[in-house]
Design a protein around this nucleic acid. Sequence first.
RNA 1: GCAGCCAUAGCUCAGUUGGUUAGAGCGCUAGAUUGUGGAUCUAGAGGUCCCCCGUUCAAGCCGGGGUGGCUGUACCA
Length: 519
Amino acid sequence: MSSADKPAPSKLKARQPRGFVDRGPADVAATERMLAVIRESFSRYGFDPVETPFVEYTDALGKFLPDQDRPNEGVFSFQDDDEQWLSLRYDLTAPLARYVAENYDALPKPYRSYRAGYVFRNEKPGPGRFRQFMQFDADIVGSGTVAADAEICMLAADTMEALGIQRGDYVVKVNNRKVLDGVMEAIGLGGEENGGRRLTVLRAIDKLDKFGPDGVRLLLGEGRKDESGDFTKGAGLDGVQADYVMSVVEHQPGIWTTGGELGRVSDWNKQLQRNATLDEGFAELDALNAAVVAAGYGPDRIRIDPSVVRGLEYYTGPVYEVELTFPVTNEDGQVVRFGSVAGGGRYDGLVGRFRPEPVPATGFSIGVSRLYSALKAVKSPIVDAKNELPLVVVTAMDNKSPEFMPGYQAMVSELRKASDANGKPLVRADLYLGSSGFNAQMKYADRRGAICAVIQGSSEREAGTVIIKDLIMGAELAAAGRELKDSAEHKAKQAEAQFAVPVAGLVDGVKRVLARHSS
RNA sequence: GCAGCCAUAGCUCAGUUGGUUAGAGCGCUAGAUUGUGGAUCUAGAGGUCCCCCGUUCAAGCCGGGGUGGCUGUACCA
């Protein structure tokens, strides 16, 4: 404080690493409620929870093996003191595969499990895209039937509705890797030697949402130049090949709505040159569709869409993507779409990496923070702040005199012990511990969003009473114009908003205020 | 990763051809009002002008390099 002890010239700068975020009380509480809803939904489908650690051996995560000294491509990795490579998990699927393989004999199969947790990706962050984020997964391991995939799709749809997303505001889109592989074969891109070009074509298809059919066509052919002048090399398909690809991926709007009835994928497939892989893919889509339709899930909820491309590295059969379809106005006033908030598919090869026998598996993953933003945008009641327990602030009128503090602490203590008719906690209670004057204490209570303030100065203390001030009603009065403040009506309201009760009646007085605002 | 734009107070931003002590609005802290949220008025706190090197008598401003941010693109399990 004296001029002698100046602050050091270089103070440490408080800052978050890029791509990582802090979350405030409202976000934490709302996310907790959201997770509870998802958990309930998954649990109802008979899934059991399991938790695995953040860290796995790098080779167990699969894709990024330490081919050199630094297994760092997109993954946070470090070496243990025995020099083995460890990594932070980048999804919840690979750790589940490791868990199932390790505990194979002890688990009931097919094994249904769910889990939520943070995952980490060491890559460039962007809007709504972080290096640490939460996923919520559900998987069925040990069942190769398409009924398992159907079950996952229905679970996805039901979970969206449980979260307060209206039917029609989301859609579960389903495709099958075998369809895409069959298309590749049909245009002559089958076989080991065409792996690179296949990837380019599939990536181009994945851009349909972003660049539209014309953009995709460019990427299938020569390539595409973006507005910054950057050029993306295309797959080099000729016109016939590109036509074929486009006819598949663009056909989806008509498939299920023809004649007002659900069409059959196998009928639609007759328009195309066929091969065994295509047939198998369409047969699986057909079976999946039949299963969900029989259970009452129409194309407004679960829909076949041949343009869905996901998980090129490890999905082997059906793939799914949950897309939000309602438009949203962002803070810049632009209308945007949320797009995909969950995705998944069948990964029959993943557990088998650890086991002598093949183990089929299917599952999906919810991007929790993206979905959270979406729930706020649709004003889902689940993320509404009103669900929080109300806060009462006890002011410390005589905070300059330490001998009065125990009295105030007795008050918050009593409020903290109070419960409602159902035996649940009545309120959260906070005692002002700062050194500022009374005016500032009211501002404090206001900023904390307290429902009421408890006040006891010297005159109340002598009278054995406390004052309870309804801050919600008080705010309306404070906002009223000066000329109104002398009116009889205003004074009557003021008496209602702020009243004295005996010290023993503190909890009852607070209940009186709660009752006013408990709608 | 590649390309473009940007970096001055907590936030949004001014800052003249390079010229003394870098400003505004909002916000924040408090006072006016022994003890009541808004409004008003007053005062206060808060800055290595992103960092380093260079040019110059002199750099927030000019040059080079770095770092960080934004946008697009690539990748995305």
